[in-house]
C-alpha cells in the first residue's frame, strides 16, 4: 500500500464511468480478459472499447441471470471474466446464479454493480441497491469492495483479475469527491488509514469516506480527534485494523451508503463483539427502501452525511 490522501472536498474531474471504461480497456490487454455486460455498456463507459473488441466483449442483453452464469462458464474454461450491470441487477436479480455457478463452484469472476446505493438517484427505489453488499457478504469466501474514488478504482480493479474466487465491486457512475492522489496503491483486504486520531474511529467505505473526512474536520475544530479508516474491502474485513482502531480510540462509528443490516456496520460490529467490545454507532440506511430524487436529497433523507456522522461521533463518545 502506498497512497497519499488529498481531500479538498471537490468533485473529481473524471466521472467514475469514464475511469471504469479506461480501466477495462487496460485490463483488455490481457488476452484472457473477457467483458460481459447486460445492455448497460453505454451507461458505464465501455461501449466504445467493447465495439472495437468484439471477441473480448459481449453484450448479453437484458439478461442478468444469463450474464452471471456465462461468466462462471467462461471462468471454468480458463478465461478471466468481468461482468457488469447496475447493482440491484448484479445482486438480487441473479443471486442464485452468482451464489451457485460462481461462488459454490469456485469460479474466478469479477462482478460489478454500478449505481451503488443513493447514487442510483433518479432511477429511483427499484434501482437503488441498499442490500447488495449484504447479499454478497453472505456468499462464502466472496470479496466485497465499495470503491472510494477514481484513484482507487483504477488501482484496485486490475488487481482483482488474478485473484481467486468471486469478487463483487460496487461503484457510482458520476464524479465523486476525490480522496486520494492519482497513482495511489492499495491492498485488497487491508483498510487504508486516511486520517489519524485518538478520540474516536470513523470506519467508512465508498462515498462515505469523503463524508467521514468532512466530519473529522468539523470535529477537529471542536477539539475531537477522529481517526478515519477507509474500509473499502468490506469482506474479508480487516479485523486487525478494526481492533487496533477500537483499542486506540475506544469508540467506533461506521458509515456506509447501504442498509446498516448486513453491510459495513454489521461486519465491524461482528469483529468488535468478538474481540474488543467498545461503544459503536452506525451511519447508514436504517432498514428502508430507496426512492427517487437527486443524490444530495437522498443523502440527507437517509442520513448519509457528515452532519449525521458528527452527531453519532458525539453520541458514541458520550457512551465511552
Amino acid at each position: 500500500m502506498n497512497y497519499k490522501v488529498n481531500f479538498t472536498n471537490e468533485k473529481e474531474k473524471r466521472a467514475m464511468k469514464d475511469v471504469f471504461g479506461a480501466t477495462v480497456a487496460k485490463m483488455g490487454e490481457d488476452p484472457k480478459f473477457v467483458y460481459l455486460d447486460a445492455d448497460l455498456m453505454s451507461s458505464i463507459g465501455t461501449k466504445k472499447w467493447a465495439d472495437a473488441h468484439p471477441t473480448q466483449a459481449y453484450n448479453v442483453g437484458v439478461s442478468e441471470a444469463n450474464l452471471a452464469g456465462m461468466a462462471a462458464g467462461l471462468a471454468s474454461s480458463g478465461l478471466k471474466p468481468l461482468a457488469h450491470t447496475f447493482g440491484p441487477f448484479a445482486s438480487r436479480r441473479c443471486y442464485d446464479q452468482v451464489y451457485l455457478s460462481i461462488g459454490y463452484t469456485k469460479n474466478d469472476v469479477i462482478m460489478i454493480g454500478s449505481d451503488a446505493g443513493v447514487t442510483a438517484a433518479y432511477n429511483g427505489g427499484t434501482h437503488m441497491p441498499f442490500e447488495d453488499m449484504a447479499l454478497y457478504r453472505a456468499i462464502p469466501h466472496a470479496t466485497v469492495i465499495d470503491v472510494t474514488d477514481s484513484a482507487m478504482l483504477e488501482n484496485v480493479l486490475p488487481k482483482l483479475l488474478d485473484m481467486k474466487g468471486l469478487k463483487y465491486v460496487r461503484l457510482g457512475r458520476k464524479e465523486v469527491l476525490g480522496v486520494y492522489e492519482a497513482g495511489a496503491d492499495f491492498e485488497v483486504g487491508k483498510a487504508a488509514l486516511v486520517k489519524d486520531g485518538s478520540d474516536v474511529a470513523i470506519i467508512a467505505c465508498g462515498i462515505m469516506v469523503a463524508e467521514a473526512l468532512k466530519a473529522a474536520a468539523v470535529l477537529e475544530a471542536e477539539g475531537i480527534k477522529a481517526l478515519v479508516l477507509d474500509m473499502f474491502t468490506v469482506k474479508p474485513i480487516d479485523a486487525e485494523a478494526v481492533i487496533a482502531a477500537a483499542k486506540k480510540t475506544g469508540a467506533i462509528v461506521t458509515a456506509e451508503n447501504h442498509n446498516v443490516i448486513g453491510g459495513l456496520g454489521s461486519a465491524v460490529a461482528d469483529v468488535l463483539v468478538k474481540n474488543t467490545p467498545v461503544p459503536m454507532e452506525m451511519v447508514g440506511v436504517q432498514d428502508e427502501f430507496g426512492q427517487v430524487g437527486p443524490q444530495d436529497f437522498l443523502q440527507n433523507f437517509y442520513g448519509l452525511t457528515s452532519e449525521v456522522i458528527v452527531e453519532k461521533v458525539k453520541a458514541v463518545i458520550a457512551r465511552k
Binding site: Y122, N123, G124, G125, T126, H127, Q291, V292, G293, P294, F297, F301
Partner: peptide
C-alpha cells in the same frame, strides 16, 4: 416527475 417526495417516480410504483 422525479423530484423529492413526488408521487411520480421514473419507474411505475
Amino acid at each position: 416527475l422525479n423530484i423529492p417526495g413526488t408521487h411520480l417516480p421514473s419507474h411505475c410504483d
